[in-house]
Design a protein around this nucleic acid. Sequence first.
DNA 1: AATGAATGAGGATTCATTCAT
DNA 2: TATGAATGAATCCTCATTCAT
Lengths: 208, 208, 208, 208
Amino acid sequence: MNKDYLPKEIAIYQAVIELFEEGADINNLTVSEITARAGIGKGTAYEYFSGKEEMIAKAFFYNGEMFCRQLYEGICNEKTLYDKINFVLLTMEQQVPRANCIFRLIHMLSDNSSLSSWIKELLRKKNLFGEAPAEDVIRKVLNDELNGRDMPSEEKMAYLVLSIYSKVFCYGMMLKGGRFEQTEQKETMRKLLNMGICREIEEILSMQ
Amino acid sequence: MNKDYLPKEIAIYQAVIELFEEGADINNLTVSEITARAGIGKGTAYEYFSGKEEMIAKAFFYNGEMFCRQLYEGICNEKTLYDKINFVLLTMEQQVPRANCIFRLIHMLSDNSSLSSWIKELLRKKNLFGEAPAEDVIRKVLNDELNGRDMPSEEKMAYLVLSIYSKVFCYGMMLKGGRFEQTEQKETMRKLLNMGICREIEEILSMQ
Amino acid sequence: MNKDYLPKEIAIYQAVIELFEEGADINNLTVSEITARAGIGKGTAYEYFSGKEEMIAKAFFYNGEMFCRQLYEGICNEKTLYDKINFVLLTMEQQVPRANCIFRLIHMLSDNSSLSSWIKELLRKKNLFGEAPAEDVIRKVLNDELNGRDMPSEEKMAYLVLSIYSKVFCYGMMLKGGRFEQTEQKETMRKLLNMGICREIEEILSMQ
Amino acid sequence: MNKDYLPKEIAIYQAVIELFEEGADINNLTVSEITARAGIGKGTAYEYFSGKEEMIAKAFFYNGEMFCRQLYEGICNEKTLYDKINFVLLTMEQQVPRANCIFRLIHMLSDNSSLSSWIKELLRKKNLFGEAPAEDVIRKVLNDELNGRDMPSEEKMAYLVLSIYSKVFCYGMMLKGGRFEQTEQKETMRKLLNMGICREIEEILSMQ
DNA sequence: AATGAATGAGGATTCATTCAT
DNA sequence: TATGAATGAATCCTCATTCAT
């Protein structure tokens, strides 16, 4: 995996992510800050990247890849659909800063910024599109669940994916926004969301 | 309404929104561009705003208010819940650029940028929080629907709001991302989303 | 004349020329140095010029124009051809630093530098080419001399111009290079050059 | 000859000259470009030269030496003064790129650049001054011509050298500048120049 | 109140040079 | 001896903000 990435490259990625998690605004991040944090010379960064934009875009992309991979591995360890979804929601609750990076990445995609172009380019290179990496995970989970049952139409699948994605994503956004501060609130909401998702899957699948 | 806003103030707001809709990146918008588009002198803008950030934040906030107001008026003209939701989804399909401004506003809230602080400050001044303006609308619609029925617990209300909000928001995001290109695709998705929302409301309300 | 030039523009031109005359290498001149010397803000320079190159190229061009104009006025005050040429050679002896700017300008034209492109562009805008401004002056002087005599062929005229230009130019170059240090040396050389030029004109004109 | 130069040294010289002939601006030449073209490592160049300036200055100096040597050999093969001069003018016409390097070298001498200092230093080491290498050749040719006649005064010799040098040099400059595009134009000019030079030599020598 | 010329702090980027291998 | 990865000083240029008019 990481064989694909050179050490200095990763140092830059981590520096960017750390700075972001510490509250920096990516649009005001400076190359000096990044390289100082990464512990390398300013000029060195330019041996690996064409410019600041590439550093930041790739950093978020890299981080997104790692996060999705971990998430997917965690999901695979769970048996039931309910537990899988619960794992995802819990992970988001527990790893708010890491999740924020993902949200920022998704937001970036709908910026008109040049970071947006970079991210889209990176997704294209991996044959992925837009929210696709998350969508991919959801589709895999749904396919596992469908095992032995009738495959619903593509429209219904797309709807299910959107429905699940939207709930998970917006729950995460609201967590970040500081809603649901108390633990019980989160727990209740998590259960309602999970039940809602499971119920909807059943309903869609039972439509003939 | 607009009595609250001075003409030059509005000129700035419109300039910012126009530039954004034409593809400008808000983080690279310059005061020169904004005032040139607004047709006023650069110095004049500083008579009305403390700085660039305030101009942009308030422009998006103003635009969001106007959009929500229009949306709410449209909703009020519809009778059934299904039609109300359909109206919202259709509006988003038909007014992608305007909707984008709203999405950008929502994204801004989870930036670490100073624009984010400004928006939060503005929301606070209006006693609103986070996604609250949208949430407000949803709550009003739900309350209309609940008329004469048992009020569900606050947790369930919060869940319903999140569920509805998330579907509408993420549908809009995907529209912007270029998914659902064909008209029939959009129509099918719109119906499925609307049915899903209505079904869920019924289910939550029927839980004792 | 100077109505064509704004005060800050001239301030930049003079700063560049002064710095050059003080021994600065134009390729290592910095915008900071130039604007500091001109007594204006760094940013201000960019209100008048697209970049450093334009500042320097236009400065030398402006200086060249002024020098040629003065030279031409001086020439017009002299009666005989001999006195005219003597005036030019003397001027070069007495105003070595100013003359250097002209030489540098001429050298610039055969650089592959971007300054070269700028200068060529400026000459083109004035419908002049290459060494043409100097050539122009020489042609005017020759025409005065020819008054009432047969006009030689264009080839011969071109040759005369080249011959006169080359002697004057290379004498200037050698002066700059520190040759002919003693006053008598200069005087002898000046006389020989002047006689050579006059003799050659006579010879060419007397060829049938 | 080349025993004086190490292979890597020559590789650098040729790289610099090639890049210049291909249109590079010497002031924007980078060490990377030079060493890449020379086919040696960047660090290696620093084993042979103290820095970039030395590389470029010595490259032009080396090239100048080679060119002058070849030119002188060619001149020696010609019998009459007219043919010798014709050979020089023809060589310049036919080898414009090579000649350009010489002109650039001469221009460099009147720069205030550090390259200028290097060139001057190199000339000093060879007991030569300024335009001296070219002057040397001219003096030799003149001495051959004077064989058996009265030696003119040093002033007159200096004048003759300047006169010849200036015509040849400025003709080359104009060739480079794109004047005299047609073959016949060049031929006519060459003849006029050559005749002018020969005539002047005769006149100076016949002055008692 | 309205303006826009002037400003200079700030930051991205380049590239000559070094030095560990 | 040969190398090229790493460095950071140096410099161009942008643009938010001010202030004299």
